Deep mutational scan, measured.
Amino acid sequence: MSYSVTLTGPGPWGFRLQGGKDFNMPLTISRITPGSKAAQSQLSQGDLVVAIDGVNTDTMTHLEAQNKIKSASYNLSLTLQKS
C-alpha cells in the first residue's frame, strides 16, 4: 500500500537514500535524522520510494534520485510504500 508525503522546504529534508537501478535495489529510506522534516512526517526507515515529485523511480539511478531531490526547492513530494 503506497502513501504520499509532501515535505515543505527548503531542504535539507532529513533523510538518506540507498539503492537505485545502478545497485539493482529499489530506492529505500536508509536513515532519518531526528527532529528533521522527514522525522516529523510519516517517513519510516526502510520505506520504498515509489516516486519523487510524481516521477516513477523504477529506472532511476541513485545519483538521478539524489539530483531530483536536490532540485526540489520548496516542496518535495514523495510516494512511498511501507516495507
Rank of each mutant, 00 (worst) to 15 (best):
I52D: 02
S71E: 14
A72I: 14
P34H: 08
I52Y: 00
M1A: 07
S30D: 09
G46Q: 04
G19N: 03
S83Q: 10
M60P: 00
S73H: 15
N67Q: 13
V55F: 11
L7Q: 00
G9Y: 07
S4P: 05
I32G: 00
S41R: 06
V49E: 00
T61F: 04
D22R: 04
H62R: 15
G14N: 03
Q18T: 12
R31L: 10
G9Q: 05
L7P: 00
G9K: 05
T57L: 02
A65T: 04
T59V: 12
A51S: 09
L43C: 06
Q66E: 12
L78P: 00
Q42M: 08
S73P: 11
S4M: 11
D58F: 08
M60A: 03
G19C: 02
L78D: 00
T59W: 08
F15W: 03
S36M: 05
I32H: 00
N24K: 12
I29L: 08
D53N: 13
L43D: 00
S83Y: 09
P10F: 10
T33A: 09
S36Y: 03
L27M: 10
E64H: 06
G11H: 07
Q45E: 14
K68A: 15
D58W: 07
G11Y: 07
F23V: 13
Q42G: 14
A65P: 00
L80K: 01
G54T: 04
G11A: 10
I32Q: 00
K37I: 11
D58E: 14
S2Q: 06
A51T: 13
S2L: 11
M25A: 11
G9L: 04
A51D: 07
T6D: 06
T6N: 08
A65R: 01
T28R: 12
N24I: 05
D47L: 04
P10G: 13
I69R: 01
S71P: 06
I69P: 00
I29H: 00
P26R: 04
A65N: 02
N75I: 10
S2F: 14
G9R: 05
P10L: 07
E64D: 14
A38E: 03
K70T: 12
G46L: 03
S44R: 12
S4W: 06
P12K: 07
Y74K: 15
T79D: 11
T79F: 07
R31E: 15
I29Y: 01
W13E: 02
P12I: 04
K70N: 13
F23S: 10
I52Q: 01
K37C: 09
